[in-house]
Design a protein around this nucleic acid. Sequence first.
DNA 1: TTACGTGCAAATAATTTGCAGTCCC
DNA 2: GGGACTGCAAATTATTTGCACGTAA
Lengths: 165, 165
Amino acid sequence: MSDLTAGEPSADQISGTGRAQTSRVPSLTGCPWHDVNEMLQSVGLRPTRQRMALGWLLFGKGDRHLTAEMLYEEAIQAKVPVSLATVYNTLNQLTDVGLLRQVSVDGAKTYFDTNISAHHHFYMEGSHELVDIPDPHLMLQKVPEVPEGYEIARIDMVVRLRKVR
Amino acid sequence: MSDLTAGEPSADQISGTGRAQTSRVPSLTGCPWHDVNEMLQSVGLRPTRQRMALGWLLFGKGDRHLTAEMLYEEAIQAKVPVSLATVYNTLNQLTDVGLLRQVSVDGAKTYFDTNISAHHHFYMEGSHELVDIPDPHLMLQKVPEVPEGYEIARIDMVVRLRKVR
DNA sequence: TTACGTGCAAATAATTTGCAGTCCC
DNA sequence: GGGACTGCAAATTATTTGCACGTAA
């Protein structure tokens, strides 16, 4: 799905890229409405009222890490009438077409990351917050030997942080 | 909780250690009953019938990656009368005292790893199987700069594998 | 029009909890 | 004996699904 599919990826391929494009929209105009519209069209999803609104919330302000519940709350706050089921559906659809990335960190809730480029995360154990690791050079010195017949689909790394007491 | 608590851990500290001790029991005698008994005592848990049996299943045959459901099935198969609730309780208690490590990999079920040393995992996307990465030299070239006031609690890395088609 | 989307409520799935009865020290 | 432990069933939490109705192409 990305550049991590080679049998023997180099360390550079594994590392985060630092700055990530927020989406795969063919051309970003800066106009949220136009951009989200095009983003949806380009993956074959109808730009409905709720998908437009959710897309706006998701991709309108840089890289974000949200759970379905969080996005639902935001939508309600923003006076966007949408149901939690639709939020789940939309997040899953966007993930399926590669516009979002799912991150599992604590078994319970699932986070969706709007940054789909190869990168890793900090997880704040206290606040359950997920943050992209800013250091673009965090990388593996050596990629493990992959078992015969398999290839690397993706590498997920989570650096769990706790407050110094 | 481990050797990963320093503000600036070295790459060696982050890497897996290759061979891991299966538990923290003061002295391993090779007698499963004696070992599990002592393991439980040493962390202040009463060696009850069900905890002994579960401990035996968990630690009796090398490093394992189990879900609550899987361990429950094994216990039933082994004619050990135990309830699923107790399996959950026991797994959580063992995790709390540091005898097990929880691994989140796909949002849904939670895996418990009997190998509590620093190491990483392969995740087979097709079979939902979790495997310790055998390569002891898989390591980070550079540890990310940790935000002010935080320290690294742990680093979880999951290398997702898919079958070559 | 007409297949695709949405909302609602019910259905699942994983896990936790309350509580009465049981067992270890 | 008494607190720790267990089992069961009910409760929670996160997420999915069935289905009648609405809406974009």
